[in-house]
Design a protein around this nucleic acid. Sequence first.
RNA 1: GCCCGGGUGGUGAAAUUGGUAGACACAAGGGACUUAAAAUCCCUCGGCGCAAGCUGUACGGGUUCGAUUCCCGUCCCGGGCACCA
Length: 870
Amino acid sequence: MQEHYTPAAIEAAAQQKWEKNQVFKAIEDTSKPKYYCLSMFPYPSGKLHMGHVRNYTIGDVLTRYHRMQGYNVMQPMGWDAFGLPAENAAIQNKVPPAKWTWDNIDYMRLQLKSLGFAIDWSRELATCSPDYYKWNQWMFLRMLEKGIAYKKTQVVNWDPVDQTVLANEQVIDGRGWRTGALVEKREIPGYYLAITHYADELLGDLEQLENWPERVRLMQANWIGKSTGVRFAFPHEIKDETGSLIDDGKLWVFTTRADTIMGVTFCAVAAEHPLATHAAQGNPELAAFIEECKHGSVMEADMATMEKKGMPTGLFVTHPLTGAQVPVWVGNYVLMSYGDGAVMAVPSHDERDFAFAKKYDLPIVQVIDVPGKTYSTEAWEEWYADKENGVCINSGKYDGMNYAAAIDAIAADLAAKGLGDKKVQWRLRDWGVSRQRYWGCPIPLIHCDCCGTVPVPDDQLPVKLPEDCVPDGSGNPLLKRDDFLNCTCPQCGKPAKRETDTMDTFVDSSWYYARYCSPDNHDAMLDERANYWMSVDQYIGGIEHAILHLLYSRFWNKVMRDLGLTKVDEPFSRLLTQGMVLNDAFHQKPPEGGKKYYWEHEVDVVRNEQNRILGATLKSDGSPLIHELTTMSKSKNNGVDPQALIEQYGADTARLFMMFAAPPEMTLEWSDSAVEGSFRFLRRLWKLAHDHISTGIVPAYKEGELSAELKALRFQLHHLIQKVADDYGRRQQFNTAIAAVMEFLNAFAKADLTSDAGKAVAQEALETVALVLSPIVPHVADALWTHLKPGSDLLDQPWPKVDPAALVQDEIELVVQVNGKLRGSIKVSKDAGKEAIEAAALADENVQKFVTGAPKKIIVVPGRLVNIVA
RNA sequence: GCCCGGGUGGUGAAAUUGGUAGACACAAGGGACUUAAAAUCCCUCGGCGCAAGCUGUACGGGUUCGAUUCCCGUCCCGGGCACCA
């Protein structure tokens, strides 16, 4: 064994051995419990960043730990390979997205391999491969047959200069990222998946996901947003130009506050609502306002923060209970895609309606009273929206009723008139999957002049995406590809055109976890092997996926289940949501639109005493920059590539450092200032092992008399095994496991281990440390093991066993408080009774200084402390 | 704006079920070894105080024998908001 720790050589040797022996290849084996550990697959953006290292190290620690615990483990890897960045790269470098993507995959695969993850690479998949996306298409057709996939109009961001649809990310301050042109909303046809059919189940099954973080379940439940309310209509006599009643003479709205119905003073409809369209005819001012509403962002965040504006239509509808005439306004904050595209407005008890009424001088009528509070129309007060304590006033026959009673009575009255009823409404909307983009999975449809839209027959799948296109930012290049576009209609055989829309990339990632089980099956999407491996026992990924990706995957899995493709109701049994790895990012907004990001080395930064960034300027010309602290990503030029770290210190140090920096779920601001310490720890471990081994290895301690010092060391060692197992398995918190090993090694280094018994304990300790640390630093652990136990392989070893005899303790230490303040500590026999403990505590010299007279009360917390209330 | 997290020394953090605040590290300072440097080892290290002790977990309140932990309010930072992935 060499004296010095040389990570490069050690890591190369271990990785070659693992590769040669195919040790991480997963084979179905019913004799063992299985453990399917999956980390979210990366987008192949070019290089790994520290967020990836964190994610995949967590997965690897859990995989290796469970392998040692006797599980048949599988940890696969693949590539979320379709998406916008490849098109952006194509625009910039004129390289086809396919080539760019495959090159990135090759490089990032090498990087992942250099980190030594226990991955079964034989299962690797890439979503841009026709072998994979064929099954996206196949599933889409099945969903079409079942009515889950359907067509309707969708609202998109339209760049009028580039004549192209923009992603939300490409709209900056309401302008196109390349052209700087004001973005318009445009309605175009698209395909949707009816995730709302599963809303009830998606919500209900959250309850069975008890090994998911509570925050994720909460976010999903809020997103699905089940609310019970009343859907009712304001009747009217408004007719269109053909003389027929618009919407059969009913303006439908939904409300969760039907108890405030007597306070309605106006209604607001979306700009696209038929009543708005009708009113705009012959009212140029209103037409202009509606046109203005149709511009601007489609994003919810923008909708919620923009200035609420409205304009009266001059139309009136009838209040269904009072018969009063209620004016109809167009509101820019009312969305046609939510519910019925119209809302009742009760300015007295809804904050947004209140602000709107004040702005446009509309009447405000109080209809809810909370005893002891005084209502005023001057300023909004939180309690105006109180559901708990209010009762109806100014509401005729409903006066005095509370929230629930009023809603029951009002819903019943509306139902009796045929004008409404209670209704459950969901916030969740169906999933629009059409993208007017090239680098994605083609939607397998054909448009025929005779037969209409015709599905591509199964035996003609996959519809392959041509891989040599180079997008230029002005629309989908497929539209110019006659070889792709032209086809024959499967029904009538006449010339027809292919659909050029591709699928949302969330489709790709909604089922990859299942495909890893049968990646080589060309005849079926999934097979029996999926029934062996599914569900995923442990899923690990960034908290940014808490809602969309995880919800879509849950939905897709349920559809697969209903098609008989899988048996599980939920795809991911246990979920660990990794905190984001943040880094500073600097950008400017150039006049031509968009955002331009700069690398930190291109920037001069001004910091305050707390090291917080106050401002930044560009080195080249001194112009000011906008600073953000945000997740590492290629597009923001703030990703830190682990390569330099690996080259300087080795993969084990990179892995150890990432795990030691913070617990997995916590957001982490990137800093490499403590990397050196992680490296030093491994070097120290190596040196301690070397010193022991150079005096000759011996059998590990089993039994026999030990000195008090060795006994104490063994107590700590076996406590460590328990502690680390608990941290890996139950708590999934690795920084504290590492700290415990460091603590043990500090004690180990101080102990006198020169006796025969000492050498045996040292052997036991070093073997144990190599084992418990191996999930985090597998290469150095493997090498140490080889020297400690020549001829055996660490990967064949089970998790070390705790020796109960080592954990026996006769005396325990208790802390003594007086009035909650620490005043001393006492040592008592481990089975001392309450009286004995109280007496010992009161006998303590320092404690006596603070206790004058008889104590009022003594609290004894077994095994922990005594608190004397004086 | 809405939903979900987070805020503890100079820094990353620990305190697992309401029970010793700051484990384990990084940085810094001091010392040993060395011709010197690197490496290594030892000591100090929240604030105030000579000490006893007092005080301290973003801020303001509350519950409790006891609160970093639970409750209410405020501020700041991050994630998500349906076409970034």
